[in-house]
Design a protein around this nucleic acid. Structure first.
Lengths: 347, 347
DNA sequence: GTGAAAGCGCTAACAG
DNA sequence: CTGTTAGCGCTTTCAC
């Protein structure tokens, strides 16, 4: 392993000078020729700064702690992680990931991350919920992803649920559907209420009647299939806006059993479908993907700007709140997300 | 932040003594009373060792680099990560995760991890493939997960594909099925060939005929549904062993269109189904889950034992190669994985 | 312009 | 048995 001292020796200067040059603090302080020589020998020796030593000195590790719920069981967290990682990487940071599936463990894992001196935390939930920040995190720099801070003290990045519901419904309206059903979720999630409002608003804006009998909220289990089945026979919808992939599946099953073809006899817009549907049903299913990657990316950028105490260049951030794609796009994916910004929270 | 010096001051000793005590190297070296006092004040002050400083000194960071493919898009990587994390945590390690979805970036990400001084790497692929280890990793301590090293120099942890195929088929045989079809994958994966061999072996061991017309390999797209559909009508299978969830879905669609009920008219054993199926089809679908968590856990344990240069206690490792669960278990999950051990690779 | 010196918080060899 | 000393590799004043 080659150190600054090695370079200093070769260049006949002290490591202080090397440090200056390699950290780009040499403008007008070091002889340009010396600087150039130092840079070249650093290159030649394949010098890699020891991040640990640097961190020890500067008290900044350039590590971000990512606490994710359900890292194990869904692809959702993966998207967020990937986005956060890309952002981190773009700014010279790195991600320390822990999963918070186990309750008691969470505090231990956090303690571990703290001992490594992470500069801040990303706290991500599987579905957008009002969340109490654990006490052991509140004195850290923190950004929530896909969750809302009850106390209102921390910034968060969340999907724009209203727009998701609005755009999904609008798309079905534009496709000429007249009896648009909403298969929602019976849990009291922010996503559910927001999407339902969007569904209603879209119908209203299009001058269409709001028929509550076209709307059912179901859990994710046996009775759900029966409920959807009855809705099919009772209301004969020609389109479905489905809360998620599981709800879309019920519609699938019902349609198949009645000899109906998705995309011809009935239309579906589903949110956040697992890849299996995207792969097998491409031509028939319209999917709105939650902007997991973008949320992760955006949240990490926000966190880094808080850590560094200044706004960072965000011109290359992923596009958010994009308009709906054209109606004939094969797998339309609409990106909606919102930064709930509580201002800088410095420690 | 409280440091060793603070404790040393309060205890009237030098920080060296504090270090000895707090690292449990005080047996017979430090006065038990002093030791006890040190421990208590450390406790009282809420002392947390600075891992960075320690690492700088010891040249060991207790950080593991996890390079995962497709962290973003499937829940698979998540399971592996979670297992690796749990193992890491059990031995006082922590996981630095990067996704290798982007090709060129991979080397950069690795370089970043190296600068942080990770003690070793876990290299994970999305599906079990013969893999060339990138040059920039070969001089590190490394364990492969869900992948096989072409050069045979590095240990790997992989699913036992043969047993998966064997057990899945056996289960259908025990359930009384007579015309058992295999819906395989047309890509040349290790998983495909291994499971097919298992399928054949199980049939042979049960004294049942091997009918090649009951076996089709399909890709994951439109024609696949047609192929499966034709198999349905031509061979009238009473059971299906499906390579994965996408293949199982084709069977689902065909069954639904023919008014057949899974679990009554036909039986399915699927491998590695996404959670959507597990949630919505619990009573009907038999799923063999790939041991992602276990592979991650096991691999991390192996890596740590290589890093520490001695075998570590593995009595609490997840159970592997477990026997098939009883036939009436609601969601049988069989755990199969194999450690391909190449011996210690020390640097 | 450049370098010497003083650490960041910890560990480990070695002398008392 | 105990404590002093000398760093790990880097950054950052402050003299020269």
């Amino acid at each position: 392993m080659t150190t600054m001292q090695d370079i200093a020796d070769l260049a006949g200067v002290s490591k202080a000078t090397v440090s200056l040059v390699l950290n780009h603090h040499d403008a007008g302080r070091v002889n340009p020729e010396t600087a150039e020589f130092i840079r070249r020998t650093a290159d030649k020796l394949g010098y890699r700064p020891n991040q640990l030593a640097r961190s020890l000195r500067t008290n900044r590790t350039h590590m971000l702690g990512f606490m994710g719920e359900e890292v194990a069981t869904t692809p959702f967290a993966g998207g967020i992680i990937l986005g956060a990682q890309d952002a981190a990487s773009a700014y010279g940071y790195v991600l320390l990931t822990v999963s918070t599936d186990g309750k008691a463990k969470e505090e231990n894992e956090t303690a571990a991350l703290k001992r490594y001196g992470v500069d801040g935390f990303l706290y991500s939930k599987m579905s957008n919920r009002i969340t109490d920040i654990p006490r052991y995190l509140t004195d850290y720099i923190l950004v929530l992803v896909n969750a809302t801070d009850r106390s209102g003290r921390f910034p968060s990045v969340e999907p724009d649920e209203f727009r998701i519901g609005y755009d999904a419904t609008t798309r079905l309206i534009h496709a000429g559907c007249l009896r648009i059903s909403y298969i929602g979720c019976s849990d009291p999630l922010l996503a559910q209420s927001g999407r339902l409002r969007g569904y209603h608003a879209a119908l209203a804006d299009a001058g269409m009647p709001i028929d509550d009998s076209l709307h059912v909220d179901v859990a994710n289990n046996g009775p759900a299939l029966k409920t959807v089945s009855e809705l099919f026979d009772r209301q004969h919808p020609d389109a479905f806006f489905c809360f998620n992939d599981a709800r879309a599946w019920y519609v699938y099953e019902c349609a198949a059993r009645r000899g109906l073809t998705i995309g011809r006899d009935i239309s579906i817009v589903g949110v956040d479908n697992h890849r299996v549907f995207a792969e097998t049903l491409e031509p028939q299913l319209t999917t709105i993907e939650l902007p997991h990657y973008e949320m992760g990316y955006w949240a990490a950028c926000r966190l880094i700007s808080m850590i560094e105490g200044h706004d960072i260049d965000c011109s290359h951030w992923p596009q958010t709140n994009a308009p709906m794609p054209p109606l004939d796009a094969p797998i339309p994916a609409t990106i909606h997300c919102t930064l709930i910004d509580k201002g800088s929270v410095r420690t």
